[in-house]
Design a protein around this nucleic acid. Structure first.
Lengths: 207, 207
DNA sequence: GTCTATAGAGTGATAGAC
DNA sequence: GTCTATCACTCTATAGAC
């Protein structure tokens, strides 16, 4: 039961990724499922509900993935490394869904838009807290936490736009490169273990 | 003369940025210009021609901007710094056009798609040569040149998706943060001036 | 749960007057 | 160079049979 409902979601993910949400028609999705377009409306109220279902599920899974990867990790730098790796791996492993989630927000209704953006903001704030903790502990150079978090998140998200599953590098290899690149960017020449000198200054950057 | 042709482009940039290419109608553009939709076709053959005009112009200006910023700069690291700054500044200063150029490629006809992607590839290869030169000179740590170039480019491109001109930070400040972040990522703890040890290995990464 | 049929609105594009 | 009028088509969504 509910099998067709899942099939519709799966076909829609393929089409939204390939052609975009607005360029994809209900009849195109129906054809991919082997049913008539009217039958779609038995499972979903309208086209936007399909998009929302994809986004909701993806954002929920993204947060769950991060939580799972961080349980038991206590060291500040290790936590940020784990968060970056979790983010990259999830985005490459669920390339289509995450690409849709980050590029088709304009297709959502006002209420659904707010729901998804709220989830995204929570996720962002979590990363910002990790960065602040790292600066406070002296692992990372002081810097603008908001901009740094955007840089890290969009860097990984963008990976989902160019990643080729049949390509030269594995997800693991790409995640490793990103992890090292980002950690170096956060340290900015700081040698490790030295306590932070400007722990007071960075707080204002979130105001 | 040709004033309306420019107005159409300008209105289309606003609408494509705000609603997306497929969600924007010819009549919407016409309304923004204060004319009837049929009049649009006197200036452009069809909707796609408007999108292509925006992209062509933007890519041409992007390359010209980079060339201008690099003339006279000879030091390898200074050249990469200048290239990163040029890229960030152009993307934030022309936020709408660069966002369209990077997100609406699917709206182009096959021939136009190839033309724009060719320009983008040339631009990418130029950055990859800068990175390779830096690794060869020992300024940067050896690494996967393609992935590093994608990381740098998409990082800056993504800036155009969240940048708020009325926001807290100036373009100059953001460019500075990105510049430092990226250069640290490229150096990866290498101290400066030391000649590269693995200059032979990185070449294979472009094969 | 899927079908046929269709309503109702909007779209890109063209013809031809001015 | 802009207009009015319209064509031909596609789209989302609904009604009601099976």
């Amino acid at each position: 039961m509910a099998r067709m409902k899942e099939t519709i979601l799966s076909v829609a993910i393929d089409l939204f990724f390939e052609k975009g949400y607005f360029a994809t028609s209900i009849s195109g999705i129906a054809a991919g499922c082997g049913i008539q377009k009217a039958s779609i409306y038995y499972h979903y109220a309208n086209k936007e509900a399909i998009l929302f279902a994809i986004m909701e599920r993806t954002m929920q899974a993204l947060v769950a993935h991060l939580e799972q990867r961080l349980t038991g990790v206590t060291d500040v730098e290790a936590r940020l490394r784990a968060a970056v790796r979790s983010h990259v791996e999830f985005h490459l492993r669920h390339q289509k869904e995450t690409f849709i989630a980050s590029s088709e927000l304009r297709g959502l209704s006002d209420a659904h838009y707010r729901a998804i953006v709220a989830r995204r903001d929570t996720y962002e704030q979590f990363l910002q807290e990790l960065i602040m903790a790292g600066i406070g502990a002296g692992c990372f150079a002081a810097g603008d936490v908001k901009i740094l978090s955007y840089a890290i998140l969009t860097l990984c998200t963008a990976g989902a736009s160019w990643y080729n599953p049949a390509g030269r590098l594995s997800i693991d290899a790409i995640a490793g490169i990103y992890e090292d690149f980002i950690l170096s960017g956060l340290k900015q020449g700081l040698s490790e273990g030295r306590p932070g000198t400007s722990a007071a200054g960075y707080m204002t950057h979130l105001a």
